[in-house]
Nucleic acid binder design. Structure first.
Lengths: 217, 217
DNA sequence: ATCAATTTATGACAGGTTGTCATTTACGGA
DNA sequence: TCCGTAAATGACAACCTGTCATAAATTGAT
C-alpha cells in the first residue's frame, strides 16, 4: 500500500506517476520492471519514489488494485441489471471485458499480468514467446495424460478430451487456490490448517454438485 | 527450461544446484531472489549459471515443476486407489499434502510460492506480514460488500456469509483463470478470443450445475 | 596415442539497479 | 513573521545481472 505521502500529492502528480507505472508495467512484467524507468517517465526524483512507495511491488499492487476496482464496479452493474444472477452476469460481463482487454489501453498490462500472475514466472527468452515452460515439462505432460487415464470419466458430465483437460485444470486451480488462501490468511492467523481442508472440500463439492439451488420438482 | 548443458551435468552437481535454488527460493520470493546467492551456495562460477539457465525465472520454473511433478504423482496414486473418483481423491490427497506443506522441507518455498503466485506481488515490508495489500484496499472491500448485497443468494446453495465470500472469490478465480489461459495459449495462437468466452461459460456452468452426472431417478 | 573440433568452465567487467541519507525546500499554524 | 513538521532531492555505496574472451576438458576419428 502506498504511503500516506503519496495520497497527499496533488491529483495531477499522482496521475502522472500512475500513468508512468502503467506504461512500465505494460512494457515489462513486474519482474523486469524498473523504478528508474518509472521515475524518469514521471519526472520525479528517485528519493520521492521511496517517499511514496515501499518498493516496486508496492506500486504494482496499487496499480493493479485500481484496475481491479474498475472490473468490480462494472461487474456489480452487470449483476444488478441481471436481477442478482451472478452467473449470468459474469458471463455477460466477460464479453464486454474481453473487448476492453483485447483492444483497450490496458491490453499489454493484462497480458503481462496474466502471464506472470498465474505462475509468477517469466523468462526473457523462453522457447516460444516470452518463455513459459513450467507447465510443459515432458514428465508433467505424461503425468497429465496418466491422470486422465486413471480418472473414471463416466461419473462426470464431461463430453470430450478438451473438457477433460479443462476440468482437471479447474480442479487443480481450486486445490491450489485454497492452499494459497491459507498462506495469505495464516499471516494474521485468521486461518488454521484444518480450514484449508474444509475449504477444499466445500469448493470441490460446489464444483461437483453445483451451487445453483434447483427448483423442487 | 534449463539448457541441455544442465541436463548433461553429473547428478551430484545438478543436485547441488537444485538444492541451492530451493534454499534461496525458500528464503526469498522470486522477486528478491538473487543468482549470486545461488551460485555461492552451490559453489559454481557465475558463468556456469548462464550456461545452464536462461535466467533466474528459468531455474525457478524448473524447480517448481519438480515439486509439481511430485504432487501430480501422488495425486494420481490417490485417484487410482479411489477407483477413479477424482473429487474424492483430491480431497483425501489434500490432507496428506497439507502435512507436507506445513511440516515438510518445502514449507517456506510453498509459502513464498503461494503468496507470490496468486498475485505476483510481494513487497518487502508490507503493513502486516510480508506485505500484501492488493486485495485489501478500502474501496475494494466496499465493492466486495456491495457485490454481496446485489447478488440474489436465494438462487444458490449458499448458507452463510463465509460461503458467500468464498463463492465470490471462486467465481472471480474462474473468470481470471480463463483469461489467463487465453494469454498463455494465444502466444502460439492456439486460442482465439471467442474461446475465452466459451471457456468462461463452460467453467461457470460446471460450477453452477455441478459436473457429477447424477443417477437417473 | 594424437590431434582437431566441439563443448564446457571460469571470472573479470561494463552497465545498470536499488535503497538510503544528509541536506534543502515548502508548508501550515501560532 | 517564525518555527516545526512534512516533503523533495540527488549523490552514493552496495549490489546485481548478463556477456565475453580465454582456458580447460571432452569427444571422436585416425
Amino acid at each position: 500500500m502506498p504511503k500516506s505521502t503519496f495520497f497527499n500529492l496533488k491529483k495531477e502528480k499522482r496521475a502522472r506517476i500512475i500513468e508512468a507505472a502503467g506504461q512500465e508495467f505494460s512494457q515489462q512484467p513486474l519482474y523486469n520492471a524498473s523504478i528508474n524507468n518509472i521515475i524518469k517517465t514521471a519526472k520525479i526524483p528517485r528519493g520521492s519514489f521511496y517517499q511514496y512507495f515501499e518498493d516496486l511491488p508496492d506500486l504494482y499492487g496499487y496499480y493493479f488494485s485500481l484496475i481491479l476496482e474498475n472490473i468490480q464496479e462494472d461487474l456489480i452493474d452487470s449483476v444488478y441489471k441481471d436481477g442478482g444472477d451472478i452467473f449470468k452476469a459474469v458471463q455477460e460481463y466477460a464479453s464486454i471485458y474481453l473487448e476492453d482487454i483485447l483492444a483497450g489501453p490496458h491490453h499489454n498490462f493484462y497480458k503481462n499480468f496474466f502471464l506472470g500472475a498465474n505462475i509468477a514466472i517469466q523468462s526473457k527468452k523462453g522457447g516460444h514467446g516470452p518463455g513459459f515452460d513450467v507447465y510443459h515439462s515432458e514428465r508433467l505432460n505424461q503425468l497429465r495424460v496418466r491422470l486422465k487415464e486413471v480418472v473414471n470419466w463416466e461419473q462426470l458430465k464431461v463430453e470430450n478430451e478438451d473438457d477433460q483437460n479443462a476440468l482437471q485444470q479447474l480442479i487443480m486451480m481450486i486445490f491450489f487456490h485454497s492452499f494459497a488462501n491459507y498462506f495469505v490468511h495464516a499471516i494474521d492467523s485468521q486461518k488454521h490448517p484444518e480450514d484449508v481442508l474444509k475449504e477444499i472440500k466445500r469448493n470441490l463439492s460446489w464444483l461437483e454438485f453445483g451451487v445453483r439451488r434447483m427448483e423442487e420438482q
